[in-house]
Nucleic acid binder design. Structure first.
Lengths: 401, 401
DNA sequence: TATAGTATTGAATCCGAGC
DNA sequence: CGCTCGGATTCAATACTAT
């Protein structure tokens, strides 16, 4: 039994799998959300599954039986990743403590993401939990490194450290007093909180299955705890993301699901795996911040919301005038004031702005006449720096006389 | 019993607190780390506490007894925040389910941070969990908003949506085909994962207590679930961060700790609370924007050196005029402009300043006449915010006519 | 081809109607 | 008064389109 996707209850199907057989298990069972899930879309097939239970205990019993079977088929160096959310994570971890042992707990992974909503009486839930347990003390684990934090002083990291005669850690110096460098650095070990974007409604990766997980999440798990040609089991495979990750990373897989539509879908996806090429994933969140630091600093003075994705204006004031927005733009370094005003005005018009404010950051001397050419709804305000500069110049001017 | 820090086991001390008495509880009990904590430092006092237990069950029993007492003293609209880490979070939540009820669960808050380490065979643990439970269905909750994601099309968010004849959501247009806007936006509701920097070893906020929590974390909790003059209880107060947060935000507090050193330390911190002004905290995700905008932020706009210890002016410009300094002062909140000018002038005279600049931060309407009374070497410049405000007002004025 | 700007969509949540 | 159900609202992040 290898590279197959099977239809049925995993409890039953796993009985046919021998002991100590698989190298990695990931499971994403129903979360005890006490509601049924369906994705309404205009696609031909509509996928759904039930997640309603007589009681929490019934749910835990259901899951416990299957986890025992999973434990049995795991090899000695196999790890399991159990995906859950806040509804029942504590109960699931109790189960894992029972079946695997308290000391076989390895990590509690937090998957965080941003999403839409309008919660009122509580915080906006935006994480899910993945428990990693191992069958024995020795389990497969490939170290993955991530980038240093932006606030890290990288050139210090590159210096080797040693202890001086008082046992204090100091930067190593060679005989001539120069700092000694380490070799190249790999980055920092992967954290247990993973900020991975939620699969958004427009993603091409989306296949119509309600609780589909991002491929990147599964790829990370597969890389972390398995090697090439290993056998990966997903007993609640749903849309088959785990299997796609396994295939793309040259692992073998067994997928099981009790919904025949899910099995069909997984088989289709395995044939033609789509990896979404999202800009957010490719370049990271930071590249969306296209406003230069100085401009952000100026705008942070004001009660405004920054707008990163519009070329014409940089911010919208928190207060509206008669239901119409007040938009602002900060003059760029080297940018002509009239150009800036023109861009601002064009963009502001499309939003029907009540007022457009251009913050002048460069003193241009005699160019006051240009102001006459400005559309009257664009108002120019000097930045503090320009205002101070002009005061200083006028004092100098007086002194020269 | 109010605004006190008491020494002893909270189980015993809480017996003296009446039923339904406190408005908010935060507790940060030992985490069941099975090790003793001390912070080795060159400070005079070395703080330590034990976190070793005969068994997990013994730990849970210990905590359970105290949580029951806490439940009793909570008002009906009170919420509790229980801080724990991966060692025992699931068992603690089981306790909370028992004592408060499964349905009184409100949020699982994940505090993430970055830290140093070289984890070998697992992910680098970099989060802790805070469970929020309420005593009844109706509990205090103040909505806090955070910035939109960088990848959001903010100017699109401002547009109103409606359904067309096919039931499809589309952007609303008025009769002339222009988009219709919503009112101003506040941002998105605060997420349940909080990225708050760990108190780094060099932070001035650090007081030597091993598991000290960042003030920002506690301030957020206090703001979220209590109001002015409320009574906040921390039965494991440790270094007293909760109490400091309570005091800074004008709440009352009761702190309890079974280590007399901790009680002493808390009392000292309450007398002289230090808020760390780390750059990361200041420029980090903008929940801070609601706080009064600091004078430092304004001055950071300018090529000046800050002067921390002079009553009359706040900064000296990097450029001098004819060998004489240019000094600056920013008007304080609620400070009369003429007073500010007077102080600035007196201080500026002693330095033989070439120019004194007063940055006005409050629009005072008709008080322009006062300018005449100013010494002529004091020049008033409007802060950006004041300038923008006055433009907006003049537009409103025109509209009213 | 690259990018700025517009069109779309879905799951969580709240809220009000109906019973 | 408690329940369910449907509708409205929310925003993150894509696809698409025009330049």
């Amino acid at each position: 039994m290898i590279n197959e996707i099977l239809h049925g209850d995993c409890l039953k199907i796993l009985k046919d799998v021998p002991d100590n057989h698989v190298d990695l298990v990931y499971l994403d069972p129903p979360f005890f959300s006490q509601s049924d899930h369906a994705l309404k879309s205009r696609k031909l097939t509509e996928y759904k599954f039930k997640d309603t239970w007589p009681s929490l205990d019934a749910y835990i019993d259901y899951l416990g039986l299957r986890l025992e079977e999973i434990y049995r088929v795991m090899k000695r160096d196999c790890a399991v990743f159990v995906h859950c959310d806040r509804n029942a994570s504590h109960r699931i971890r109790m189960l894992l403590d029972q079946i695997f042992g308290f000391d076989r707990f390895v990590s509690e992974i937090i998957w965080t993401y941003r999403r839409w909503s309008n919660s009122k009486n509580s915080l906006l839930g935006s994480h899910q939990t993945i428990f990693m347990y191992s069958k024995t003390e020795n389990y497969k684990f490939n170290r993955i490194f991530q980038d240093y934090s932006e606030s890290t002083n990288l050139d210090q990291i590159l210096q080797r450290r040693e202890r001086n005669q008082h046992g204090k850690a100091v930067y190593a110096k060679d005989s001539s007093g120069n700092v000694v460098l380490h070799g190249p650095k790999k980055g920092v070990p992967l954290s247990d909180t993973w900020d991975i974007p939620y699969l958004n409604p427009k993603a091409r990766e989306r296949c119509g299955y309600p609780t589909q997980k991002p491929l990147l999440l599964l790829e990370r798990i597969v890389m972390l705890a398995s090697n090439k040609d290993d056998l990966i089991l997903d007993p609640f495979c749903g849309s088959g993301t785990t299997l796609v990750a396994a295939k793309l990373l040259n692992r073998n897989y067994i997928g099981i699901d009790s919904y025949s539509e899910a099995v069909e879908l997984s088989r289709k996806r395995i044939e033609n795996p789509i990896r979404s090429d999202s800009r957010l994933l490719r370049t990271g969140r930071a590249t969306y911040k296209n406003l230069p630091r100085e401009i952000i600093n100026i705008l942070h003075q004001l009660p405004v919301k920054l707008v990163q994705r519009n070329r014409g204006f940089d911010a919208i004031h928190n207060e509206f005038i008669n239901g119409k927005p007040v938009v602002l733009r900060v003059q760029r370094k080297g940018e002509n004031l009239a150009d800036a005003a023109g861009k601002l005005q064009r963009a502001g018009k499309t939003k029907d702005a009540a007022l457009m404010i251009l913050v002048r950051t460069e003193s241009e001397g005699q160019q006051q006449s240009l102001f006459d050419m400005f559309p009257e709804d664009v108002q120019v305000i000097d930045s503090l720096e320009v205002a101070v500069q002009s005061k200083m110049e006028s004092i100098l001017h007086q002194l020269r006389r």
